[in-house]
């Protein structure tokens, strides 16, 4: 698969030149995301994960403080000859879903809101209509098309926000803590939607979160700590290294925690399970082994 996002030695800090050295938010990030990949970026508060997301869409204050390279589809978006039109093209390719669903919805009717992005792209009304219906269908919100957003639940609002991004048909969607304000049901819905978009629609998904359970489903997990990449690998690899995770200020997913406790209390388990299914299988196997 081809590289879609390539970040090379990215440095960033907020504020003026003088105070720059002490509080670098990002200090030397190298990261590659391939087309069609599902990557989870984990990190505790202040690890720089949201800053990274905003940089990828050039929606950040103090952009001039960024150094290094971010190549999106081969274009260096941090280069000096980046024009407004190029930024527009970038945002067409890379969509973003934010944390607070209320602060992303523009219109007073669900379908009008989904149409907002395609309308900005200057598409034909018929094409907009088609995309809106399709996007609402993808997130399972078709029956709410004529409703007012403020009457929906948090998870439903967030699904509308996602539909608004899908309707622009981007190659990649970045979820910037999009589940942080939702209840467990809403969170589950959104994670399922992310997975569906990645697996069925081939959209590159970059999800930024501090919920371990969400990262378990990704192809690759990247852990950020103090503006640097601390751990990188498949979910199995990352979550088998409890020490490194804790050093980055994170906890294991609940299933991995359970396995860890079982090993501590003397059960003979050799592998690591991170999904509930894996976990059940491992415990059953270990239980069977001790019975013999």
């Amino acid at each position: 698969m081809a590289e879609f996002i390539e970040i090379k030695n990215l440095h960033f800090s907020y504020g003026k030149e003088e105070s720059k050295q002490q509080d670098d938010v990002l200090c030397g990030v190298d990261l590659t995301v391939r087309k069609g990949e599902y990557v989870a970026i984990l990190g505790r508060n202040g690890s720089g994960k949201s800053t990274l997301a905003k940089l990828l869409n050039l929606v950040i204050d103090d952009l001039e403080n960024a150094s290094g390279e971010i190549l999106v589809d081969g274009v260096n978006i941090l280069s000096d000859d980046m024009t407004e039109d190029m930024a527009f093209e970038l945002r067409k390719k890379v969509g973003m879903v934010f944390q607070n669903p209320d602060n992303q919805l523009v219109a007073t009717v669900v379908e009008e809101d989904v149409a907002f992005g395609p309308e900005n792209l200057g598409l034909d009304p018929k094409e907009i209509r088609r995309r809106v219906d399709e996007a609402l269908d993808t997130v399972g919100m078709s029956e709410f098309a004529k409703r007012e957003p403020h009457r929906l639940s948090g998870g439903q609002k967030q699904r509308v926000a996602i539909a608004g991004v899908i309707a622009m048909m981007p190659d990649c969607i970045i979820f910037d803590e999009s589940t942080a304000m939702l209840d467990p049901v809403g969170r589950k819905d959104i994670v399922a939607t992310m997975e569906k978009l990645n697996r069925e629609h081939g959209i590159t998904v970059l999800t930024i979160t501090h919920y371990m359970e969400e990262a378990v489903r990704a192809d690759r997990v990247v852990v950020l700590n103090h503006g640097k990449i601390a751990i990188e690998g498949t979910p199995e690899q990352v979550f088998s290294d409890a020490g490194a995770l804790r050093a980055a200020g994170l906890e294991l997913p609940q299933c991995a925690q359970l396995i860890e406790e079982l090993i501590k209390s003397g059960m003979s388990i050799k592998e690591c399970g991170i999904t509930p299914e894996d976990c059940a299988r491992i415990i059953l196997l270990a239980g069977g082994a001790t019975c013999q």
Binding site: E84, G95, V106, F116, G117
Partner: peptide, 20 residues
């Protein structure tokens, strides 16, 4: 936040905008 979200959805004023 809304302004950021609108920018991300390619909003740049009324020019070149169509309606559904």
């Amino acid at each position: 936040e809304l302004a950021t979200a609108m920018t991300c959805r390619c909003y740049r004023g009324g020019d070149g905008r169509t309606r559904m």
